[in-house]
Design a binder for these strands. Structure first.
Lengths: 173, 173
DNA sequence: GCGACCTTATCAGGCAACCTGACTATGCGT
DNA sequence: ACGCATAGTCAGGTTGCCTGATAAGGTCGC
């Protein structure tokens, strides 16, 4: 550990290199750019009242419904935070809370028909944006970008990408 | 069977595929992972009182000093926000504000000796982390990641990456 | 079958990192 | 020299999270 730091400091003495943009800075810019484009596309759908914060719900809630605690864990947020977001989405008609038949303390959070449609469209928009990036910057390069990022995500925070670990149950034909 | 799979994939194309993690979600995870590691390394330096928000200053302020307005523009924040950050860094001894000799309204924001050292070390730490990623995930893949992200940044928000446009003025020899 | 303990969700309050709007001092074009 | 633009600051607000405390409901040992 000390060795690592010593090495870093020595390196710093040799070149503190402000001419190179930092990797996370570049990723932040890319993320922001895509979210901006996403918001723009979303404005053309009936779902203009969905805000960026709501994403953590649409990303993880599926089919049969899910408990607040589980959702919060997957999203990496506190139950309170997610609870507030869910309240809001309930008010907007995207979500309904049903009593969990197996546990009277719990409620199941489930997408309404409207919520399901919004989710479907949201995923499709991200898909479309990725294809636009593929056209603009090279399909192979964007595929490589995704593959590398998936490796990094799996290595660094596997819990945050359940989609990559539990591959989708085959959809009913 | 193949037919079923093909149908499922087509469905995914049309309707959006919730089994795929969104590209910005992956990048967010990668960014967070790197910032977490960065903070950890920073804890081993003398500069533990530098907070994540301060980054926008260290990233852009160089040599001769810079005006608040210019800094705010590059950082993509308001003058007020950056002003507060600069106040804080001044209190911590990383920055000094000098009157601009060419304009009595303006002040030049410049790194102190301490600030310069912190900046140098900060850049070196990011450099080191990128090298660690190169070892863990493949040097070629991380290089490709950076190259692709630089292209995206240049295309989507060129103003935010002045480093890539005005290559560093050669240091005085 | 009952008390100790663990969950589930919620209420209340707080804080960091931004923002908008209004203002002063200074500079600049005609 | 007058009107407008620009540099920075002061005041106040919003958003997206957080921690702490609490009520209602489950679970397990004995």
């Amino acid at each position: 550990m000390d060795k690592k730091i010593a090495a870093a400091q020595e390196l710093a003495l040799v070149h503190g290199d402000p001419s190179q943009v930092t990797l996370p800075a570049l990723m932040d810019l890319a993320v922001d750019a895509m979210y901006v484009d996403f918001r723009k596309l979303l404005e053309e759908t009936p779902y203009t009242d969905v805000r960026p914060t709501h994403g953590c719900v649409f990303r993880f809630v599926h089919g049969e419904g899910m408990r607040l605690t589980e959702l919060a864990t997957k999203a990496g947020l506190t139950k309170q935070s997610v609870g507030e977001i869910v309240d809001e989405l309930t008010g907007l008609g995207y979500i309904e809370r049903l009593p969990d038949p197996t546990d009277k303390r719990a409620k199941l959070i489930r997408l309404t028909a409207k919520g399901l449609d919004a989710q479907r469209i949201g995923f499709a928009l991200f898909d479309q944006l990725e294809k636009e990036w593929a056209e603009a910057f090279g399909a192979d390069r964007i595929a490589a970008l995704r593959a590398t990022l998936e490796d990094i995500a799996l290595a660094k925070s596997p819990d945050a990408v359940p989609e990559l670990i539990h591959p989708e149950p085959a959809p009913v034909a």
